[in-house]
Design a binder for these strands. Structure first.
Length: 294
DNA sequence: ATGAGGACCTGCTCGC
DNA sequence: TGCGAGCAGGTCCTCA
């Protein structure tokens, strides 16, 4: 699912339904879903059996469940990448297997399962040691290189601005780089740029401090608002742990709105092919810079 | 060392 | 009705 607000919706659900519960068994239904777990699916299942989930955490679009064995503080975590189409669902053990069920966690209390369902299999699960990540926080090993997200305590806006302006690329590419700032994807990058009145191909090295502040504020505002609304979803692929969709798509200003009126100036929203995907922007509010960095 | 491009998947919609 | 093309909210690896 996912960008930061949608992953946070899932994290909250996972915390509510899974924290404090002990895993009985893990069934791996598709090898690709555990490809990041280097030791393989059987090892992942063995590591999960009998351990207790102590909490659900998130950085950017990465979600993990802290695992404790024998009452010890968590030293490992079950990392969950939702990828493009991953879902974490709470389901009764008796519910039939979903078409794209990849991994099923059953609990010792015989209560609801936690199921990882993923149509496109870009997402996946892995059990990893917790290590020191950016900002001194304990994170799963493969999250160590991911930058803090802008809704996270300790996010340093000044350091982000300086790093952004050291880049030699377009501002949208930079916003999508999870090692610079995490949690922003294609929807919220476009929305943040619209709010900041910046074109996606604007070279990062030409950004002024005030423009950096605007785009960061735009990202924080749009993602916070989306979170309030339960996340953005256009279809049943993006849902919370109970299978329910958020309704923030009604509040989007540019994403998916080609040809519709800009809420600020009334111009027709345009769509450009960019980075093998689409970028939506207002031709009048976000004019193309003389020097563009696609 | 950075930055850009392609690879990795399934399924849906559109046009012919 | 069938079929290919194009598209979808992400990340990673490789190559320049």
């Amino acid at each position: 699912m996912p960008e930061l607000p949608e992953v946070e919706v899932v994290r909250r659900g996972a915390a509510t339904f899974a924290a404090g519960r002990t895993i009985a068994t893990a069934e791996v239904h598709h090898p690709r879903a555990v490809r990041r777990h280097v030791a393989g699916g059987a090892d992942l299942a063995a590591r999960l059996a009998g351990v207790t989930i102590t909490g659900a955490e998130r950085r950017g679009k990465f979600l993990w469940l802290a695992l404790s064995a024998d009452g010890e503080p968590a030293a490992e975590a079950l990392l969950v990448h939702l990828g493009m189409s991953g879902q974490l669902l709470v389901q009764p053990p008796t519910a039939p297997a979903e078409k794209h069920l990849r991994v099923r966690l059953a609990f010792a209390d015989s209560g609801p399962d936690l199921r990882f369902v993923d149509q496109r299999t870009f997402g996946g699960l892995s059990v990893e040691p917790l290590v020191a990540g950016h900002g001194g926080r304990q994170v799963p090993q493969s999250v160590a290189h991911i930058a803090l997200d802008p809704l996270e305590a300790g996010f340093d806006a000044d350091a982000f601005g300086a790093a952004l302006r050291r880049r030699r690329t377009g501002v949208k590419r930079a916003l999508l780089d999870q090692t610079l700032i995490s949690g922003i994807g294609n929807i919220y990058a476009d929305e943040a740029l619209w709010r900041a009145k910046l074109h996606f191909a604007r070279p990062t090295e030409t950004l002024r401090a005030a423009e950096v502040e605007r785009v960061l504020a735009g990202a924080v505002e749009v993602m916070s608002a989306a979170l309030e609304a339960g996340g953005t979803s256009f279809d049943s692929l993006y849902v919370n742990v109970n299978g329910e969709s958020g309704y923030f798509d009604r509040s989007l200003h540019v994403y998916g709105r080609e040809g519709l009126e800009c809420a600020r100036c009334g111009s027709a929203i345009r769509r450009d092919a960019f980075m093998n995907r689409s970028s939506f922007s207002c031709p009048r509010c976000q004019p193309r810079p003389r020097r563009a960095h696609w």
